[in-house]
Design a protein around this nucleic acid. Structure first.
Lengths: 263, 263
DNA sequence: CAAATAGTGTCTCTAAGACAATATCAC
DNA sequence: GTGATATTGTCTTAGAGACACTATTTG
């Protein structure tokens, strides 16, 4: 490090990959019922080699003059034409063999965009971009099953959690389920981070528009964490994080709900 | 990304910087009193430009064939000849202007080594390596003061916390206090991560040898978080995380303490 | 009225913090 | 015994979870 010149050492290519989440609203079967949310994430069908025609996370190469966060935001904007409310790094993925094109390491991010945002899918380098419903569960043997579905397309990846001796637990891909590169592991890491954040109401507001009902907020948390909680207790817990408005929902087949804002 | 060749894009140099913590034991003034611990971290005096003679974090360049974690471990081993128990990534630092030598981005890590470990200081590229006592507090105006001291050497950095609109809060350096590069911000981020981890007893065991007393464990947490808790309550909270041995401390001027192991 | 959601009140249990009391060793 | 730390017990309070109940709207 004493007399360093950047020409002396080989350099990796650096990318940012982003796991963009939103809630897809699920239409109720009954006119009186409210719509619920299903956690979904954005995947892009690769047009070129390697992993041609496989589904992959949006992402791209770091350019000179930008930070890695700038790079991630730029890529999200290119794919969704939306500036997200959240962006959190979930770590570097740097296994030497992770990309057959060569030495390419990636900083992965979690991002969340609101349900009402425009999510036009464009992009030069994307043959196709789609939102996939997410299911992520641990089975009896302790390994994790990641299931991503979009209409009749279903990707099933299987991962195991490796607790290294350094307290860092990483996911190891047993079956990529057709996902490109190590993206199944990145998605598993992202889901774990998202669920951790949802526990103390970190990300849940970002899925909703500015004004929302407390039931909508609860549905977000339940969709992310795949649990169900009693509404009375949920309301008590978030009461300190929201402020009332004097507006109400209208036209549903039941008692109108007060709209709240994030505090 | 369609027809990518790694030659088409400019590439940054990538480094790993590590904030290595340990506890320095503070001798008691009275033979009956136990020794307490002071949180300290490893800095290296730079022998070459830029920032010649400034203090900097240990770290170095990512080499082909290794992961960024491998790189961090290698650098720690080179500086302390110890394989640490903990290694946690705290994020990428990628401001384009952060290094005057050129486009160099860094993945920062927190690491902890036990008090009893050998910490011989060697290293080709280090003119000098020393352990600095740490103090990190928020003042009345809301900015953070980082104070690092080793004998008569005292570094004082001042930082403010910038809450970006994406929920990611980063430290901005107001005064580097003589630390090289953006290392004051990296250290502040590391301390925040360490304190968060200490809250739920994440890292505290790594500071101690295999067998320890509960009071020693409590001293670790208090040194890291700069608080003091009642021992009765501390014992209750960690009781689930440790197992008794049938050994006791000897020779102190007071009742011997039972030794415990991490569960 | 029926169906569905909105919203409030309260009981229990657990965990955290404060504090008091007792135990044991080296000198 | 004295000074220090070790260890246990208990009181109070805050919060989580469970459950029961009331309120309001549309068809």
């Amino acid at each position: 490090m004493k007399n360093y010149s950047t020409d002396d050492y080989p350099r990796p290519s650096v990318t940012a990959d982003i796991v963009v989440f939103k809630l897809r609203s699920k239409k109720p079967d009954n006119f009186r019922k409210d719509s619920h949310g299903v956690l979904s994430l954005l995947l892009i069908r690769r047009g070129g080699h390697p992993y041609k025609d496989c589904w992959a996370l949006p992402g791209g190469f770091l350019s000179p003059g930008e930070t890695i966060e700038d790079c991630a935001l730029r890529e999200i904007r290119e794919e969704t034409s939306v500036i997200p409310a959240s962006l959190m790094s979930i770590g570097m993925f740097s296994e030497p063999e992770r990309d057959p094109r060569g030495w390419i390491i990636s900083n992965a991010f979690v991002s969340v965009i609101g349900s009402t945002e425009e999510t036009q899918q464009s992009g030069d380098d994307a043959a196709d971009a789609q939102w996939f419903d997410v299911s992520f569960e641990q089975n009896d043997e302790g390994s994790y099953l990641l299931r991503l579905s979009h209409n009749d397309i279903v990707l099933r990846a299987e991962l195991s959690e490796e607790k290294s001796r350094f307290g860092v637990s990483a996911f190891v891909i047993r079956d990529s389920g057709g996902l490109a590169f190590d993206h199944a592991a990145i998605i598993a890491t992202a889901l774990t981070a998202l669920r951790n954040g949802a526990k103390d109401f970190e990300f849940i507001f970002d899925f909703l528009p500015e004004k929302f009902t407390l039931t909508e907020l609860q549905n977000v948390q339940e969709a992310i964490m795949n649990i169900s909680v009693l509404s009375a207790n949920f309301r008590r817990k978030v009461s300190g994080l929201v402020t009332e408005t004097d507006e109400y929902t209208e036209g549903a087949g039941h008692r109108p709900a007060k709209l709240y804002r994030r505090k």
